[in-house]
């Protein structure tokens, strides 16, 4: 089993590391790898556009994961209440998850369409805008619009996990807290929050790793535009390999993206450990 895991994950990783120290075309007649030392990493780290993309990706990751956490927890708390049609609404939660990212990205592109999109129609109707406008074509705005689509796609995984955690919190704990004199906020702070913290954290770690690797939603919605303002770090791996055919430096880009993900995970793990202490 260990050997299988090692082979499945280890071999491609080793291959990628090896490639990152070489210059090699992706494919073709004469695929020859020349040792270039750290030159690929130098190219990567000196690329101002890539550094900007990393900053952009971090922004995307932090904002979308925070929003998913907040909305996910709020929705889970609502769905934990008794109300008519609760089972139906809970089932609806699965919808965005069940939808392939590419499909939901297409859907949001239609919603944001500047000429006939529902988003424009809605905002116009409630009077927030007085003319249809471009959402994905405006620098600065486009990133945030994609974040909304991303949050819509993924908040429900947080909501579902938190909802499951909520149901494991014994009712007696809430009653004990009520009798101890806790109001709604104190009950949330002292019973609900500690009860959902661990699963929520795991969900957020997974979401963060996923979010930092983001590619398809941008590929479908903006292709990195306008003017590169939504070009995320993984675009550089993709372009470098499949568009520019440089397998060596593509590997370096990939490894740098992986390294940043690992730093993010390490920060999370530390935060979680701290949370665990009394």
């Amino acid at each position: 089993m260990f050997i299988i895991v090692l082979g499945v994950t280890g071999y491609p990783l080793l291959q990628t590391i090896w490639l990152s120290f070489h210059s090699r075309p992706l494919a073709g007649h004469d695929v020859q790898a020349d040792w270039v030392g750290l030159a690929n990493f130098k190219t990567v780290l000196e690329n101002a556009a890539f550094r900007a993309a990393v900053a952009r990706t971090l922004y995307f990751t932090i904002v979308s994961v925070l929003a998913e956490a907040m909305i996910g927890v709020m929705v889970a708390l609502l769905l934990d209440q008794e109300f008519r049609g609760r089972a139906f609404v809970r089932a609806l939660l699965v919808l965005p998850l069940a939808m392939p990212t590419v499909v939901s990205a297409m859907m949001w592109r239609l919603i944001y369409n500047p000429e006939y999109g529902a988003f424009n129609a809605l905002l116009l109707q409630i009077g927030l805008i007085d003319d249809y406008r471009s959402w994905l074509g405006a620098p600065g705005l486009a990133m945030n619009m994609v974040i909304i689509a991303e949050v819509w796609k993924n908040f429900s995984i947080v909501a579902i996990i938190v909802l499951a955690a909520l149901q494991t919190i014994p009712r007696e704990l809430y009653e004990a807290a009520t009798i101890d004199g806790a109001g709604p906020w104190a009950r949330f702070r002292n019973v609900t929050w500690p009860g959902i913290l661990a699963p929520l954290s795991v969900a957020l770690v997974l979401r963060t790793i996923e979010a930092f690797k983001v590619f398809d939603i941008f590929y479908v919605m903006t292709r990195g535009g306008p003017a590169n303002t939504t070009k995320t770090a993984t675009f550089f791996v993709y372009d470098e390999s499949f568009a520019f055919l440089r397998a060596g430096s593509a590997s370096s880009y990939a490894l740098v993206v992986v390294a940043i993900s690992m730093v993010l995970i390490a920060i999370y793990v530390r935060l979680l450990r701290r949370q665990d202490q009394p």
Partner: peptide, 20 residues
């Protein structure tokens, strides 16, 4: 059209075909 900056051929066709 300022929205041209997010258009591909199909969006051009849609806008033109709708008479806008």
């Amino acid at each position: 059209n300022p929205r041209s900056t997010e258009f591909l051929e199909e969006e051009v066709r849609n806008t033109f075909s709708s008479g806008r």
